[in-house]
Design a protein around this nucleic acid. Sequence first.
RNA 1: GCCGGGGUAGGGUAGCGGUUAUCCUGUAGCCCUGUGGAGGCUACGAUUCGAGUUCGAUUCUCGGUCCCGGCCCCA
Length: 410
Amino acid sequence: MKLSKPRGTRDFLPEDTKRRRNVENILRGVVKNWGFEEIITPTFETLDLFTLKSGEGIIGELYNFTDKGNRDMTLRPELTAPVMRMYVNEMQARQRPIKLFYFENCFRYERPQKGRFREFWQFGVELIGSSKADADAEVIALAYKMLEAVGIKGDLHINNLGVIRNLLSVLETEQQSRIMRLVDKKDYTGLEEYLEEINAPSELRVKLQRLIELTGNDAIEEARKLIGDIPEINDYQKLIELLEAYGIEYTIDFGIARGLDYYTGAVFEIYAEGLGAQNQVCGGGSYQLIKLFGGGDVPSTGFGLGFDRIMEVCEIEPEESSSVAIIAKDSTRLEAIKVANELRQHVPVYVDIMKRNFKAQMSYANYIEASHSIIVGEKELEEGKLTLKDMKSGDQELLTIEDIIVKLTA
RNA sequence: GCCGGGGUAGGGUAGCGGUUAUCCUGUAGCCCUGUGGAGGCUACGAUUCGAGUUCGAUUCUCGGUCCCGGCCCCA
């Protein structure tokens, strides 16, 4: 074969596309009912949007290019930054909260592996304008419910970075960032070495090491004992109470972190089984990006769902709906087109365009899994009727087109 | 960027120095000009690419490429 698709991209055949659209629409249905509205941003953006958010280091992972005006551009690797850019550009005067969602493809120049492609789809939500635990809870619960709606029982881990940031606040900003990155990577030996290197106070060291290993139901109380009655723990407590009210299952996990400074409070990740090394299907949290992009001091919370990974484990199949193959003879082909015109107001219709004989048309109807075939033959037309055949049962009856429409749309 | 395992018709496979490159499935047509899913017959269709070793490479060696899994990374 001479032409092939670019590495890490995929073709979606009709069957694949049908499955994907079905799941996509289920997810859309859920977010819409939570009051979120869909937006679309450009497929490519200026390079600095992403370097500003994530640092120069990400350039190696980007599909970037210079356009004919010598501007540095890139295909978007994610959608949080574009959405925040959109907000800063044209939505700052709107009353808050602003509840947005998107479903778009993203591009990253990475080594493909299971659940990781160079072109992939993200379904994401951004809730702009509230720093309250209520906003965090709504977003987290929504992520959970979306996965539930497509039959995925995710393992949800939550944390509030405010607690660890409070603990680290005595250190220099640079040191704090470095520590957050190490915690995020779960590189605990590296963390120990670094704490040694900067000669961190031994009390802080012990507290930190114990804190990031706290998980489970009593974790908050233990953290309170460890660090004291700080406001961040109370916020965390509020979040838990709200999540209980939403009726979702979660695991408190002080080990969840983010390597970037603009994450402020709540963070969460959802894992699913059956995905190999890339088992995270959702990641999110509250962040402060708008200020970084030159807007006001507006807090946000959001998440991204890895749609391709969802499809990997999701077993939902589209519902079967009725479709019709019209079987005609040479002498009735023109009449068949008229019948097709009528029926196409209601259901998908196939008409032979291969000049096939009667039997071959029937065979094709079977192949495409049409629920019904309709025989437009001389005998039928003489009576002003058509034969409707149920392809599953094989039963057939002579009916008027009106009766057929009633039957098919029932 | 790194480490493994792989690429033979559209899909699934056999062959592992010399074959008309095997078989299944598929697609098209016919048997069968108003009834599909079965059967029979016929046709279509492949050695990932490039170099090397050899009289001769699908088979051995090296490199590229793509696929699969993992590391790194994961905004």
